[in-house]
Nucleic acid binder design. Structure first.
Lengths: 255, 255
DNA sequence: TATTGACTCTCACGTTACGTCATACCTTAT
DNA sequence: ATAAGGTATGACGTAACGTGAGAGTCAATA
């Protein structure tokens, strides 16, 4: 019961080309060749191939696999343990890369916050009474916890007037772009709009990290509260609903 | 104060060849060329190079870096956050590789130390009456032919108790993994689950080679027969249905 | 000034593990 | 007999350079 290349390929999940290649480099030779030059494999080769693929999954290169296949179990243990060290190094390198990314993102955020200033709208410093109103809503609906709110406030405790200006400017720019999108009849699920929503999400994320439900909940706040309605209506009458729809889609796709 | 290739290379820690290459692909052009065709760089290029190297460290490929360098900070943030997801995936893949290595090493260690045997489940030698039941089903539904059955039996005619134990152990291990997958809410079409199904397919393939229809038919046998139901329920109540779904997907994709 | 050593340039092939044609032969079923 | 599908052997492409080869250039020294 010999396998042809295609059959072996299907069973083991590799390509025919891979089998050709493994033959070529001597990693896995067929059991025999037909006189038509066809390659025929048997159970033994299937088992060998499975071992090869096992090591390949572990990111061994084919040269090493070649060596491993000809070695005994003691050697295999050695090799595996040596490989483990390499993987651990990879691991910690990736971890440090992740930290670097986080730092860079927040740095860039700060930079965009600090960029030039145009007056699109006057500065609107916080009205504490209303703010509390929103907070009550967010807490009631379990969109944010008390801890979330505190951390969020800590983010801005050192902000100067200038910082608030930049912040509002970023938001206004974003909403202006969204208003254009509404005007152009773009769909909330279109790639362009979703990219803008991602910007919205990133801005929010700077203060607090929403999940699927809470991000949608935040959208609802925009609808419920007259102040938000008014704010968004300045850009476009249909913007609130459009934004909420787009946020929902974004949340369902990405969060 | 222009740098020649070698000087810039030394300062930035790359090779001269790299600078040649970056010039060639347009990633970093020198400030100007001398009439001797020499490349001359200035501070501006040094800063650009440092940015390039920053992203290179984060494992961006040069194409992406090229794009990044021409984009604004918002786009950079997007790109970085997208990249972060990729890195996180890499991270968890490496973590699972480390676990696999540990398991393999201890397995090999056990093997070399003694030809141990673990009792995962008692041996269940065949009950002939029931077996005939299954065979009738398989023949009726044209899932296997008489010839298939005979060949399949020939495979096991020389099996010893040990062989059956090993066989059952493999099966149990596989089902255990699948049960974990169910528990983790993995989708039947996910790569992880499909890899497990491939193992199932290979085990079946040892006895008989199913095609798309018959492999799906085999799945149905599992649902129809109370013995199979009971067997799979031992691992997880939803396992049968999950397995059948996953087998169907596997068959449609690979057979 | 001539020479030497360090530096530069432009090809161009090698690397890894295959993917992707191209072209031609083989097998199997209708 | 013809068509469909499998198989074989090239041979080029990939990513990001490393590593020469052969030839011209620059700066310092004898």
């Amino acid at each position: 019961m010999a396998y042809t290349v295609k059959k072996l390929a299907q069973i083991s999940g590799v390509s025919v080309r891979t089998l050709h290649f493994y033959d070529e480099i001597g990693l896995l030779k067929p059991a025999y060749y037909g006189e038509n030059k066809y390659r025929y494999y048997e159970e033994e080769q299937l088992l060998l191939l499975q071992q090869i693929l096992f090591f390949r999954e572990l990111k061994f290169n084919l040269n090493d696999i070649q060596r491993i296949m000809g070695s005994d179990d003691f050697d295999k243990i050695d090799t595996l343990l040596a490989h483990k060290k390499i993987l651990k190094d990879d691991l910690s390198r990736i971890q440090s890369m992740l930290r670097t990314i986080d730092k860079t993102v927040s740095h860039l955020w700060g930079k965009t916050k600090m960029s030039e200033q145009e007056i699109f709208d006057g500065v609107r410093p916080h009205d504490d009474k209303k703010q509390k109103d929103y907070e009550t809503y967010l807490l009631d609906k379990k969109i944010m916890t008390q801890k979330d709110l505190e951390q969020s406030w800590k983010r801005v405790e050192n902000w100067q007037k200038e910082d608030w200006e930049k912040f509002h400017k970023s938001g206004d720019e974003l909403n202006q772009s969204l208003a254009v999108a509404v005007e152009k009849n773009l769909a909330p699920e279109s790639a362009e709009v979703q990219k803008l929503i991602r910007r919205h999400y990133e801005m929010v994320n700077y203060f607090w990290t929403p999940n699927k439900e809470t991000y949608i909940g935040l959208g609802n706040l925009y609808r419920e509260h007259p102040d938000f309605q008014k704010y968004y209506a300045k850009f476009h009458p249909q913007l609130v609903e459009f934004l909420i729809k787009a946020m929902k889609i974004f949340a369902e796709r990405n969060l």
